[in-house]
Amino acid sequence: MFEAKFEDGGLFKKIVEAIKELVKNVNLEANGTGISLQAMDTSHVALVALQLNEKGFKKYRCEKSLTMGLSIENLQKILKCSGNDDQITLRTQDEEPTTLSFTFESKNRISEFQLNLMSLDQEQLGVPDTEYSSVVRMPSNEFTKICRELGNINEAIGIETSKEGIKFYVKGDIGEGQVSVKINDTEKPEERVECEVDEPVNLSFAVRYFNLFNKASALSSQVILSMSQDQPLVIEYIIEEMGSLKLYLAPKIND
């Protein structure tokens, strides 16, 4: 039997909101340590990796590892029947479940839904736990804003790191520009900007994907960008007390 109860069901809804435009059908994996999900976007340029640790749930039980194939669109239809302040419990009964049960619980109502599961054949990638040569932490709303602004000018956005900080730049038909974000160690953790640069990087990415990734900014006030030259970048949103959502994007290559 599998059972996982979110004290804050709104958080689960935010996670689904954050990934719904990137992935369609996903395998949700549950085991004794928690729930995880890994899926490539339809163009196979981005990778979504979610990890929710067992300790972050109000209640968690998983006796046997389980793979649950679901359609994000259908999951969202069911989640629309829940309130943002509901507690949400996910549950399966059988060893090889064909449905995933949802209980939505508020002060004055309890709702039960069953979502039909699918069998999905999806390639799982082994993402090595590497050290990145530049790691930047900055406010997630600031990153969202920069991507939106520069995305108006060109479809590709450059990121350059140095000991001094991080610079975003664009070069388009209409002209060019750059935004440098200053390092600061303000007492407000959500406004902090930190750069750890062992080796500077200079990379270019399709801003369209960043704009999709930025839907996840509702999960965390800070975003962590981890980069190494000519390698996919990782954009990480820490989900407080529960785990993290990592979004990987392959860089553009100059032929």
């Binding site: 196979h44 340029v45 990638l125 082994g126 270019s204 390698q231 996919p232 994007l249 392959a250 553009k252």
Partner: peptide, 14 residues
């Protein structure tokens, strides 16, 4: 112009 490799060309299957 700038091109893009797929993400699974960087990471091997599990």
């Amino acid at each position: 112009g700038p091109n893009q490799r797929t993400i699974n060309s960087y990471f091997s299957p599990k």
